[in-house]
């Protein structure tokens, strides 16, 4: 994990106390509203976000800038790429699985909620 400091985000998504898959749904939702080049800051206390958010960026072609830690939660930074791939990891699973809110991590563990 890359630690960063002093990033000035354009938009902040406070999802502290929200668990999987809200971090990915909120991320996708917020990114839609951003202009290319703008930076989203995600505040979360959900450990799974540390893996899922960089992975989401890989899949969608957005840039994961890194994270900074504050006492109670993580701050993750994502820069919107030019021409973001319209891909949502939640919809790559079997039809309906996204609707049930199945976590990509849980699926990877073979844990069919």
């Amino acid at each position: 994990m890359r630690f960063v400091d002093g990033i000035r985000p354009d938009v902040t998504a406070d999802i502290v106390y929200m668990m999987c898959p809200m971090h990915l749904l909120k991320l996708e939702d917020m990114m839609k509203g951003l202009q290319p080049g703008q930076v989203l800051e995600i505040l979360t206390d959900y450990d799974g976000a540390l893996e899922d958010v960089p992975e989401w960026c890989d899949k969608t072609g957005n840039e994961f800038l890194g994270m900074s830690e504050s006492p109670d939660f993580y701050k993750l930074y994502v820069r919107k790429a030019n021409g973001c791939k319209p891909c949502c990891p939640l919809n790559t699973g079997p039809k309906g699985a996204g609707a049930r809110g199945t976590c990509p991590k849980d699926r990877a563990r073979g844990n069919k909620a």
Binding site: D14, Y17, M18, M19, M22, L25, G101
Partner: peptide
């Protein structure tokens, strides 16, 4: 809006995960 609240009931994305 903007107020943090800890859910009572976890395990779904309804109501914004709250």
């Amino acid at each position: 809006g903007g107020t943090r609240i800890m859910p009572l009931i976890y395990g779904g994305i309804q109501e914004g995960g709250r």
